[in-house]
Amino acid sequence: MPAEFYYGVEVFLNGLMAGVMYSLVALGFVLIFKASGIFNYAQGVMALFAAMTLVGFQNGQIPFAHLINAALGTEVHHFGWTLPAFVAIIMTLGVMLIFAFLVEKFVLKHLVNQEPIILFMATIGLAYFMEGFGDLMWNSDVKRLDVGIPKGGNIWVEESTAFLGGEDFYGFYLDSLDISAALIAAVLVGALVAFSQYTKTGRALRAVADDHQAALSVGISLRTIWVIVWAIAGFVALIAGIMWGSKSGVQFSLSLIALKALPVLILGGFTSIPGAIIGGFIIGVGEKMFEFLIGVPFLGGATENWFAYVLAMVFLVFRPQGLFGEKIIERV
């Protein structure tokens, strides 16, 4: 077997791992879309915000230190303690819950019955707000995030695949972090499915997703459900934020994966959790393989910037309802 082939396989595997990240963000989108019909552009910024908050708590950063210093002329920055990752994660979850509550109270409640595109634009506004708010609270430096997930090439994978190739093949290179991410994502999806299938709240969630009016009429509180869903989405965002942050640092580019999640959703459909996962894999593998096979050899590289969007566009032209959607029959 030629070395390129093995390299191709490795690219494929890495694409799968990148797909896990996209899937995680897309999952947050799907949850909120199903429960409230809102296309939440802020999901990516929520991941960024959650990661920033986590780092802030861990390192004992003083919130709004920059602002306080500028306004009062003081020189504060840290409380001088560090928290264990576990405690910081719990505290961050609390913050995301408060955030969910505030979003419901100040935004969603007032936008009931607006057109989807208006809601979409409102969440873009929300994203900008959170970005400014997060930077103001924790400052905008690139931060290192470490909650104890193993990093670096996975020796075990490398050693156990080395026999496949010849002399100069040392086994596939996979980052342990990516492997953990995939495992955690699988657990998360399992937990979400179990939650929505076997709990009372989960059943209420599915009822709301199916039909708002009918859910209201059997006594389900729409507003409570929204808070719960946004909190769950905040939880998913935190997971995504931890993964991405551990890999490449907590920084602005994290919020841009929200954009990448859009084509993922278009492929997978806005309402399907398996769709989000599969869509994420298709985009992740697709853009890595395209870059490897066509981008670098023929187009000068960096095709990952646009491949996902162009794929989504071409796909939509032939199948406007998505991979798993039903054919739309137009009526008058």
Binding site: V107, I124, Y128, G132, D135
Partner: peptide
């Protein structure tokens, strides 16, 4: 950022 976002909402 904060003001633009809040204003849009």
């Amino acid at each position: 950022f904060l003001i633009i976002g809040a204003l849009i909402v």
